[in-house]
Simulated scan of single mutants.
Amino acid sequence: MRLSVAAAAIVFAAAGCAADTPEAGVRLTATLTSPTHAELHWEGLEPGAAGRVVEFATEENGQYTVLQYAPPQQTAFTHPDLIPETPFFYRLRPYFGPASAEVEVTLPPGEMAPGSEQADHGWAEPKALPGTSVAPVAIRDERTRAGGAATDLKAAVKHANGIHFTWVDHAADEEGYLVEIRPRGKPEFSVAAVLDANITSFGLITLPDEKVATFRVRPYVYGAQSNVAQVRTGT
């Protein structure tokens, strides 16, 4: 899963138990298929959702951690190799937001040059560049959401595995930004990085199968959470 493999380039989203009313149209179930292996299934669709966040906690009122930003057509998730004899609580939250225009990037062949890992990667740090947040539009309101899409997305190749992105932020109330990727030959986009609100500059260190890929960025807000499904692992 991209979010765990590229953890060094990603800010994980984590949140405490929300006070949102559970989404009546979505039903989540969790079952153990072995003492330490959970399977999640859900049904129902939130109109206009860009995807769903799959989250877990190990305390009923504890802090939730993101497992995956799942595309809207996905209806199941496998959570393997869990801590034995521990309760696990799961929930879904839809996320909404307009995607930017897409940009395709072709990286040079080969791997990162020797010594590059020790080089200054300050360019990759998420930043809010001056003058790149203009004409703020509320994306929580579906009537104005489309106007909050980022514009002027640009990608600059930094080395054989590094891409620097910049864009103009038009969203007024986003929870944060998602950097989405679709490697050549893949049918759909997935989330490559989760950033704070108002970020307009970010550098991504790519994986080996991402030499040619299409990218876009998306400001997002969360919708109402699903019901909470619980399992307790065995020995």
Rank of each mutant, 00 (worst) to 15 (best):
P108G: 06
V137K: 07
G131Q: 08
L129P: 04
Q118C: 05
S116V: 13
A146P: 00
I139H: 03
A128D: 01
L129G: 01
T144V: 02
A128F: 00
A128P: 00
P126Y: 07
A146N: 07
G131D: 03
A150I: 09
A155H: 10
G148Q: 02
D141K: 04
E142V: 05
D120F: 11
P108I: 07
T151K: 11
E125Q: 14
V134I: 15
L153Q: 08
A155M: 12
R140D: 02
I139Y: 06
T151V: 15
D120N: 15
K127D: 01
P108W: 13
A128W: 00
P136H: 04
G115L: 12
A124G: 09
G110N: 08
V134S: 04
P114N: 10
G131P: 02
G147R: 07
D120L: 12
H121M: 13
L129H: 01
V157K: 07
K154P: 00
T132D: 03
A135Y: 08
P109A: 14
A128Q: 11
A156H: 11
A119R: 13
G131S: 05
D120M: 08
R145S: 08
G110E: 09
A119Q: 11
A135V: 03
A138I: 00
K127S: 11
W123L: 07
W123Y: 15
W123S: 02
H121C: 10
A124Y: 01
R143K: 14
Q118V: 14
D152Q: 14
E142I: 00
L153M: 12
P126M: 08
R145Q: 12
A138W: 00
P136R: 00
M112Y: 06
W123P: 02
G147C: 10
E111R: 12
K154W: 03
A124M: 13
V157M: 05
E117R: 14
I139Q: 05
G148E: 08
L153W: 12
S116T: 14
V134E: 10
T132M: 12
T144F: 04
A156I: 14
T132I: 03
A135G: 00
T151S: 13
A146F: 03
W123K: 01
V157P: 01
D120C: 08
G110S: 11
L153K: 06
K127T: 13
E125V: 15
G122I: 06
A138M: 01
S116Y: 14
M112R: 15
P108L: 11
